[in-house]
Design a protein around this nucleic acid. Structure first.
Lengths: 145, 145
DNA sequence: TTAGATGCAAATGTTTTGCAGGGCT
DNA sequence: AGCCCTGCAAAACATTTGCATCTAA
């Protein structure tokens, strides 16, 4: 009676045990914006199961090291965030006003990796682009000041 | 007898008092790679003056908010780093092996800001590109394993 | 059965803050 | 003089870790 969900496959392929904690965290993060450990903790609790905060930290760390999640500090507020690493390539725009994170589908990076290779002898594994500015809403508010 | 160094001008232009702490920190950061608060603390101490660690934090925070420094968490090790925001546009490549940070002069970003504007109505103030991979040295070591 | 996962509580390390004194303008 | 800046020590947070218990393979 194998209930092979996508989540199970992901974990299985990386030699990771399929546990409640891992499934809950992946389901919480899937298709959503980057979240902090304590946000994940709360979301999981609201949904079904109980997970300790340290398990959230440990699990997110493990999944990040396996390349399933991406750990980042987009907002530079001293809190790490984890996001599901989609196969598609996604970057973010961060509003300096409300600190909201907007996903950006366009990646202008095309052949840059090759340049890094030839010019710096640097093997590019991944890259991240972050854009800082003001979103539509906050732009309005700025004008009102 | 105005000894108007560049540092003084920078501070003056932003309506910031010219204090020992600010000068020391700016001089320490100028033209160097991103540094943590405690690295700055040590470097300043080794050079001339005494600064408390909390002053380093407070000053870096202030200078970041004025756009003189850039605060970042490039390495995702839970420690914030501050760097002097040069007029020229510089990005970084971070080696996943030794965690060293390499400055990259090339910016492939040309007209991307305009796209952000028209497609997302997002006012771009600045952007950051981070590249993760293996530097020349660590590439060698990887092969040896 | 057994290595690996989890929960709990305590420890660690970074960053922030309150308050009193000192320095810049 | 007046307000902002700094030092010190304590507080607040985020994250990690040790150890005992549990669980997936």
């Amino acid at each position: 009676m194998p209930d092979n969900t996508i989540t199970d496959k992901i974990l299985g392929n990386k030699n990771l045990k399929i546990t409640k904690a891992r499934k809950l965290i992946l389901e919480t993060l899937k298709g959503s914006l980057p979240k902090t450990a304590s946000e994940i903790f709360t979301l999981v609790r609201d949904k079904d199961g109980e997970l300790s905060l340290s398990t959230v930290y440990r699990t997110c760390e493990t999944l990040s090291q396996k390349g399933i999640l991406l750990k980042s500090n987009l907002i530079d507020d001293g809190v790490a965030r984890y996001e599901y690493l989609e196969t598609e390539h996604i970057h973010h725009a961060i509003c300096l006003g409300c600190k909201k994170i907007f996903p950006i589908e366009d990646c202008p990076f095309g052949q840059f990796d090759k340049l890094m290779q030839s010019k710096y002898d640097f093997d590019v594994k991944s890259h991240r682009i972050e854009i800082y500015g003001y979103c539509h809403d906050c732009k309005q508010k700025q004008k009102e000041k």
